[in-house]
Design a protein around this nucleic acid. Structure first.
Lengths: 115, 115
DNA sequence: CCTTTATATACGCCGTAATGTATATGCATG
DNA sequence: CATGCATATACATTACGGCGTATATAAAGG
């Protein structure tokens, strides 16, 4: 069974990413997605189930059609995860700037401590 | 062979994510990472190679040790990809992004006014 | 030198996940 | 009710990726 892939594992599959991309324009029915996904309808349905279980999409029945659309949750999760590292590399750039500053000061004042 | 996983596929593996996490604190040698990664040293080396090929880390030899550290590239790629989906949630976060942009500009141009 | 330590790689094994075919389910309509 | 369309799912196949063991390589140190 599949049971609850995390955000990264869900997005790891290129077909699923193309489905997510296709949903950027709003609600789509399964057959519309089949046109762009490059896999068989059964595959699209499976991917949609996985995306739904991971919280990426929600489904709304409309007669015999099923309309899928994006949900923000996992994107926010990703955002939060990414923020950790944004801080990291920005801090690194800041430290780089600080180091330059320290060097400049040290040149004028050789007693200055170096880390 | 493996040859160039994309950002999402690279991050899909939990062990690789734990390695990336371990590198948040800066340069680490392989054995240090083995302690926290939960897999054998050979596995860690393989993961590090994959991370390097995907641009997540760089390596610096130091005697017999190899020091690995994070590189920003793929994080920025992720950032760009994620930006497409920002309109899914609140404008609050857009303003947060703007604030970061302001910071970045300010760093390059220290005369810039800050709020 | 010989041994120890640090890391990388070849190899085989195994689990997982993606795919298509075939089929089930369910709505819609004549 | 019979037929057709839209979607989901069971099943078998196949490919890929992660793992550990064993081994190669190379630097340190006695």
């Amino acid at each position: 069974m599949m049971t609850q892939l995390d955000v990264f594992q869900t997005l790891a599959d290129p077909t699923r990413r193309s489905i997510v991309e296709a949903l950027q324009g709003g609600e789509r029915q399964v057959n519309d997605i089949v046109q762009v996904a490059g896999v068989h309808q059964s595959g699209v349905s499976r991917h949609l189930r996985i995306l739904q279980e991971a919280g990426f999409v929600s489904m709304r029945p409309d007669g015999q059609r099923r309309l899928y659309s994006l949900k923000p949750g996992p994107f926010q999760t990703l955002e939060t995860w990414l923020a950790q590292y944004r801080n990291l590399w920005e801090a690194r750039l800041d430290r780089f700037g600080d180091a330059l500053e320290e060097k400049r000061k040290a040149r004028n004042n050789p007693d200055t401590e170096q880390g």
